[in-house]
């Protein structure tokens, strides 16, 4: 499903968090939302969901939308905040079943269809053997897959993931991004993923929304735009870059700690 934002602005407590953001994303894209801390990445995702009050407009497949939540009857989406909860005493299967809350029957509870959806999601993410375990006992990587399983159980068209790889190690980060990319292609999902890990996301995402201080610096194809000069400007630092054997750039920041000089 294609997603479009026009002149999106968010002002909270007199502070402009997002200013006049417009973009158009074709359905089935993998969109990286990048920008320095405080750029407005989380605010953008929350606005898309409908968790923030905003001005401007959205449209999904050409149809006007007030945020994905308002259209939850026709559009299915999954939003995972950066600091998602890991509820005490809840088994993995219950956690994934929560994704069916708005679909299951209010009076009779979960039907066989709900159980099938959860079962398939757990199987797809290779979590079925852990289905009875408490989510508090899962590793960081398993928990991230559990959030994806919940999204699949929701039969989501859109995945919105706020810095999902922030707490994952090198290997788990690549595994997770690969998994999302695979699911996106298999299920034709449109994925919005915010991250600071430019070196990893550059290998998977095809679109980029680049934010800085609430403004949109770029929205469109990712290829070519994420170069050394652009990123140095974006993060206000000096970057160097190398290339891996596939030709993907690898960026690293030079030391520039502006606070060190001022420490006596």
């Amino acid at each position: 499903m294609a997603f479009e934002a026009q002149s999106l602005s968010v002002i909270a407590s007199g502070k402009t968090l997002l200013q006049n953001i417009s973009f158009r994303i074709p359905g089935g894209s993998f969109v990286a939302i990048i920008g320095p801390n405080g750029a407005g990445k989380t605010t953008l995702m929350k606005s898309m969901v409908g968790l923030e009050t905003f001005t401007g407009s959205f449209s999904v497949n050409g149809k006007s939308s007030l945020g994905l939540l308002k259209d939850k009857k026709s559009i299915s989406f999954s939003y995972t905040p950066q600091n998602f909860s890991i509820p005490i005493g809840m088994s993995l299967v219950e956690y994934v079943m929560l994704g069916r809350t708005s679909r299951s029957n209010w009076f009779f509870g979960e039907t066989q269809r709900d159980y099938d959806a959860v079962n398939n999601a757990l199987k797809k993410l290779k979590l079925l053997p852990k289905s009875k375990e408490l989510v508090t006992n899962l590793s960081g990587g398993e928990m991230q897959r559990a959030t994806l399983a919940r999204a699949l159980a929701q039969e989501a068209n859109f995945l919105l993931l706020d810095e999902p790889t922030a707490s994952l190690d090198f290997a788990r980060t690549i595994d997770f991004l690969e998994l999302i990319d695979l699911l996106r292609r298999q299920l034709n999902l449109t994925v919005f993923l915010s991250t600071h890990d430019i070196n990893s996301i550059i290998r998977f995402a095809d679109y980029a929304l680049v934010l800085k201080k609430g403004k949109n610096l770029h929205s469109g194809q990712l290829k070519g735009i994420l170069n050394k000069d652009f990123l140095s400007d974006l993060y206000e630092t000096q970057l160097d870059s190398l290339q891996d054997k596939n030709g993907n750039p690898i960026f690293h920041a030079k030391s520039h700690n502006k606070y060190i000089d001022s420490i006596p």
Partner: peptide
């Protein structure tokens, strides 16, 4: 009680799941 189960997650997650 279904909503109380959703509240075992954060408010944002609960709302995004239809709560």
């Amino acid at each position: 009680s279904k909503e109380l189960d959703l509240l075992r997650l954060s408010d944002e997650e609960a709302r995004s799941l239809g709560g």
